[in-house]
Write a protein that binds this DNA or RNA. Sequence first.
DNA 1: GTTTATACATGATGGTCGTCATGTTAAAAT
DNA 2: ATTTTAACATGACGACCATCATGTATAAAC
Lengths: 200, 200
Amino acid sequence: MKVSREQVAENRRTILKAASRLFRERGYESVTVAEIMKAAGLTHGGFYGYFASKDELIAGALADVLSRRPDPTGDLADFAAGYLSAAHRDNRAGGCPTAALAAETIRLAGEPRTAMTTGVKRQITRLSRIVPGETDVQKRRAAIGSWAAMVGAMILARVSDDPALSSEILEQTQSWLAAKAKDQGCATRLGRVSRGPSRK
Amino acid sequence: MKVSREQVAENRRTILKAASRLFRERGYESVTVAEIMKAAGLTHGGFYGYFASKDELIAGALADVLSRRPDPTGDLADFAAGYLSAAHRDNRAGGCPTAALAAETIRLAGEPRTAMTTGVKRQITRLSRIVPGETDVQKRRAAIGSWAAMVGAMILARVSDDPALSSEILEQTQSWLAAKAKDQGCATRLGRVSRGPSRK
DNA sequence: GTTTATACATGATGGTCGTCATGTTAAAAT
DNA sequence: ATTTTAACATGACGACCATCATGTATAAAC
């Protein structure tokens, strides 16, 4: 049975969304085409009317979810509090695609890698607008470091099967980022980082 | 043909080592038992004389490689310089098992998760000995934050198919960690982080 | 030296999954 | 209203892979 044009467009969006959620939750490989189509309310055979291959779906789903990522608002502490929350940790399917999929995407080439790279660039640019710092160079550095710390902390918290450790990673990384932000101001005010007390 | 006792012990080590390298390079799922055995110089049928299943091999290989991780020496800047190097980025198979496998291990239960959790705990403990800070609480926080940042930066650098961005992530995260370490000293010297200049 | 136990090679098996061929039905086009 | 087109359901195909059964040759035990 043929369906309407709008239905087709909606089906495509539904497939992309279902794929993105399943991939974030279980990775690219263990999720099957049949499963994605079932989650989208269709049967597996119809898949190839929408995508030429599973690889193409991966590229499409990744580009889609990354392009829809909301612009961070507020200051870095606000953003970090939301990102490094237990709710986010426990919501892989609906959470940050970078934390969920970057490590797997390393082994892919072409479109998925490029899509993820674009996502990293954009996130760095956006974060540099909200991190503290006096020069653009400083802000970009802080954006890169903070983003790496948040993504890394989320992965470490998720992999830890000790709940106390998992929470500690989220909380302490947040405090550490906050402390770093304040110190950054302090150090620059003193006239340069290099004037800080020397360590061995 | 039966082989000597020592040969058996060596074969087991060879299998674990080959598995660990292949897993770090290509992930748990896409690596086949036959491939691991071939890399170990054996045929696939013999595998089940050593391990009851591929899952058991995953647990064994992960525990093995994590337990052999060298203790960080020198100060944090030294460690970060080695960790956040282009050589490490380009050597997944021989590099940090956390950066390569933590994200995949999230989806596993039981022994592999526990092994990875133990690895995270140990690394935090070890890093807290070399990070700057005046109290144990501060040092542990810095160890957690720095470890998260290093693991996250390595993943982001590896996934970036733009070489300039990839290098920038490694270099700037390193500078950022160094600046943070110095500031941390500065801030505490000033008598508490909370006395830093207030931001909005 | 003979016997026994076992590590491993070879090959088979069953299940899973990506992909595709075909048929059917309903939307578009005329 | 009729024709045409296209979306999707059903089912099949072929490849891949984890696991296991069997045979064999050699180390270990006696």
